[in-house]
Deep mutational scan, measured.
Amino acid sequence: MIINNLKLIREKKKISQSELAALLEVSRQTINGIEKNKYNASLQLALKIAYYLNTPLEDIFQWQ
């Protein structure tokens, strides 16, 4: 199981879903879906999320 901390980290950094989506060149709905565990981010997208949030990938998506 993967624990998804994207919403928590994004909100801590005061970045909206729309802002993050624009940086990543995806839709806001994609970010929303990832945060609600409706969609799994591809490895490429997960790495981009970590880069733009300046946060280690394993802090955003944790295996349990």
Rank of each mutant, 00 (worst) to 15 (best):
I9P: 01
L53Y: 02
S16D: 04
N4D: 02
N32S: 14
L43I: 11
E58D: 12
Q62V: 14
N54L: 06
L47C: 15
I34C: 03
I2A: 08
E19F: 08
K38C: 14
K38Q: 14
K36T: 15
I31V: 11
E58P: 08
I31T: 01
I49M: 06
Q29D: 15
E58S: 13
I34M: 04
E11M: 13
L6V: 06
N54I: 04
I3S: 10
A46F: 06
I2E: 05
Q17M: 08
S27D: 13
E19M: 11
Q44D: 13
A22P: 00
L6C: 08
A41C: 15
N5A: 06
I2D: 04
K48P: 00
G33D: 15
K14D: 08
K36S: 14
K36W: 07
I34Q: 00
K38V: 13
F61M: 02
L24K: 00
Q17D: 03
K13L: 13
S16F: 07
L24T: 12
D59M: 11
Q29R: 14
K36I: 11
R28K: 13
E35N: 02
P56I: 04
L43M: 12
Y52M: 10
K12H: 10
K36C: 11
K38R: 13
E58C: 12
A22D: 12
N40G: 14
G33K: 14
I2H: 08
N37P: 01
E11I: 12
E11D: 08
L23I: 10
K12N: 11
S27C: 07
L23Q: 10
Y51T: 08
Y51F: 14
E35H: 03
Y52I: 15
I15V: 10
N37F: 08
I49P: 00
E19P: 02
R28A: 13
Y39H: 11
L47F: 08
Q17Y: 04
E58T: 11
K13M: 14
E11K: 11
K36R: 13
F61T: 01
I3P: 06
Q62Y: 09
E58A: 11
I34F: 03
L6D: 02
V26S: 02
F61A: 01
Q29S: 14
N54D: 15
E11W: 06
Y51A: 09
L47A: 10
T30S: 05
S42H: 06
I60H: 01
E35K: 02
K12C: 12
A46I: 07
S18K: 13
Q44L: 10
I31P: 00
K48E: 04
F61G: 02
Y52H: 12
K12M: 14
Q29L: 09
E58M: 10
L24E: 00
K48Q: 08
L8E: 15
